[in-house]
Amino acid sequence: MKLCFQNDNICVYSLKDWVKLRKEYRIIGEYLGSSQATPTLPIKLLPEEAIFLINKNVAKLIQYPKLLVEPTDDCFKEYNKLQVDLQQAEQKIYKEYRKKELKPYIDKIVIAKQRKLNDSVSTSSVLNEELNRMKVTQENIIWPTLTEPLDCVKGESIEVPKSILMKRTTPTKILVFTDLWEKGYYVTCGKKFGGDFLVYAGDPIAFHAIHIIRCIEDPLKPLHTSELVAFGRLGTSVKKKSVLATKTNETVNYITINWLDL
């Protein structure tokens, strides 16, 4: 499968590839797309996830040269036309849906309107007023889910060397991610909890994380007591085990920090 490397992001656009990554390889990634409150493709992978897949000969890293070129005026015009067309199409769909939704209640709405205005109003005018209450704008438009790169970047691609990704991670993080994956866990980004990785016993859609992993690059470098205390308390506050991971001769060592209130 192809991992698209653009703007320092490693993206997966294909729905088929996304399903395969999640089901067969326990690779979750992070949603980049969004349609209102619903996350959508593409997904962004961690450097460790991408390197793991490349090492397993499951994927290759590619780049689309056309995306490196400054967009032309014609591209912006095409984009603006697409947005206008989408807004008009969604406005039409919304009105049809809203019309069906109002049909059982429109008579009651008309009567209530007449009482409020103390005047007669037609059903069609009330219906049109209700249908025009909501406008599809740039802020609330629902963009389609991208299941592959846009047409303008299809075709020509170049393969990117794995060394590019190595600059965005460390050998310790790569080894720790691989070790946790081989133990059967699901592993995701742990930055929001102050770590490098979050570890799950099953798919995160059904399980909560059980460990916060922080990778220590130099196991001989002393850690300040305040760092250990803060990391241990953080794990306890979010009901997860705080774990330090180090690498020694290609072997991963784990140390769990437990916080006890005495």
Score class of each variant (00 low, 15 high):
S157I: 03
S157R: 04
S157D: 02
S157M: 11
S157K: 12
I158P: 01
I158L: 05
I158Y: 03
E159V: 03
E159N: 00
E159S: 02
E159D: 02
V160T: 04
K162Y: 01
K162S: 06
K162W: 00
S163C: 06
S163I: 14
L165G: 10
L165E: 07
L165P: 12
M166C: 12
M166S: 12
M166R: 13
K167R: 14
K167Q: 13
R168L: 14
R168E: 14
T169H: 11
T170R: 02
T170V: 07
T170C: 03
P171C: 07
T172D: 03
T172R: 01
K173F: 12
K173P: 07
I174D: 00
I174V: 13
I174R: 04
L175T: 08
V176D: 11
V176N: 07
F177P: 04
F177W: 01
F177L: 04
F177A: 05
F177V: 06
F177H: 04
T178N: 08
D179C: 11
D179I: 06
D179E: 15
D179H: 15
D179T: 15
L180T: 10
W181Y: 11
E182H: 14
E182M: 14
E182P: 00
K183W: 05
K183R: 15
K183C: 09
G184Y: 07
G184E: 05
Y185P: 01
Y185E: 02
Y186T: 04
V187F: 02
V187L: 03
T188S: 12
C189Q: 12
C189F: 08
C189P: 00
K191D: 11
K192H: 13
K192I: 14
K192Q: 14
K192E: 15
K192W: 04
K192D: 15
F193M: 11
F193A: 12
G194D: 09
G194K: 06
G194H: 07
G194M: 09
G194Y: 09
G195P: 00
G195V: 07
G195H: 05
D196W: 00
D196A: 05
D196R: 09
